[in-house]
Computed example of a mutant assay.
Amino acid sequence: MAVMVEEIVKVAKRAGEAMLEFYNDDVEVMQKDDDSPLTKADLAAHHIIVEALAEIDPDTPVISEESGIPEYEDRKNWESFWIVDPLDGTKEFIKKNGEFTVNIALIDQGTPVLGVVYVPDKQTTYYATKEEGAFKQLADEKPERIYSKLSDGKSELTAVQSRSHGSNSLIKELEEKGLTVTKTVPAGSSIKFCLVAEGEADIYPRMGPTMEWDVAAGDCVYRYSAREGAHPSPLTYNKPDLKNTGFLIGVEGDFKF
């Protein structure tokens, strides 16, 4: 696994470098069938990652946001698969605020066991494996182990929330659930998971739906930022439609939106 995660980090960085070739130009925005934005950077990163995974791990299927969803009948018995969001945070990419990522995760028996989140504009990598834990790497410096603590929900909390979708109603709903949020940290893409994983925020609440490729790599980094074992996570994988409902990570208890 150690060799594989190093290979996947290299792939994520290559995809990120390809994105940046488009970043400083006027971004041409296309619309997908669901009206979400798509750029040439998304597609360039997609091709790099999918082709690399086919060489590194040819026997394991790949789901990428940009390649469509295989029929559930074809994948319901998959024991493992890669799930990829080549450019998570396309809106942030278009806004040029730097908060977009490359997300690559390996799911095994319904659980993320390897995850890489690369932030191209910051040359920052977060990655984790089930066996080795979670790490942060700045550029080509030595990776450092990162840790987070699961909150009991009784103290004052710092919540990370979407820079594009943050709202006061989220904080009010958390208060109704008995949680006290005294500070919020806005962030884009799967960086939100990573801020919790490295202890910069206590919780990440998400009211709206997401797709599995949006969350898998970040969820992996968060889970294995525990000092022992893994943090619990409400997120599950290989659902028939690959969609998640709202979730809350970073606190004990089963909270639903």
Score class of each variant (00 low, 15 high):
171 I>V: 14
201 A>C: 08
167 S>Y: 10
56 I>H: 01
24 N>R: 04
11 V>D: 12
47 H>W: 04
146 I>N: 05
150 L>C: 09
191 I>Y: 00
153 G>Y: 00
199 G>Q: 04
4 M>I: 14
237 Y>R: 09
215 V>Q: 01
121 D>E: 12
199 G>S: 05
168 N>P: 09
242 L>N: 14
110 G>C: 07
109 Q>F: 06
51 E>K: 02
72 Y>N: 09
87 L>E: 07
26 D>F: 05
35 D>F: 05
56 I>R: 02
153 G>C: 05
27 V>H: 01
78 W>C: 11
118 Y>I: 14
172 K>P: 00
192 K>N: 13
178 G>C: 05
7 E>N: 08
8 I>P: 00
106 L>M: 15
43 L>F: 02
46 H>I: 00
74 D>C: 00
124 T>C: 08
69 I>E: 15
256 K>S: 14
53 L>A: 10
27 V>P: 03
145 R>V: 14
146 I>K: 07
252 E>S: 11
213 W>M: 14
60 T>I: 14
165 H>T: 09
43 L>K: 11
193 F>L: 11
25 D>M: 09
197 A>F: 06
101 T>N: 14
185 V>C: 07
57 D>M: 01
37 P>A: 08
167 S>G: 13
172 K>F: 10
112 P>S: 11
17 E>Y: 09
135 F>I: 05
100 F>R: 10
107 I>E: 11
94 I>T: 02
11 V>G: 14
240 P>G: 08
196 V>C: 14
97 N>T: 09
137 Q>H: 03
215 V>T: 12
85 D>P: 02
197 A>E: 10
115 G>V: 04
224 Y>F: 13
214 D>P: 01
245 T>H: 13
129 T>C: 09
142 K>A: 12
197 A>V: 11
113 V>K: 15
245 T>N: 13
40 K>R: 04
10 K>H: 05
98 G>I: 10
225 S>V: 09
138 L>C: 01
185 V>P: 06
251 V>Q: 09
201 A>T: 13
242 L>M: 12
118 Y>P: 13
190 S>C: 07
199 G>Y: 00
171 I>A: 12
65 E>P: 05
7 E>H: 04
141 E>K: 03
3 V>S: 11
84 V>H: 08
201 A>S: 12
2 A>V: 02
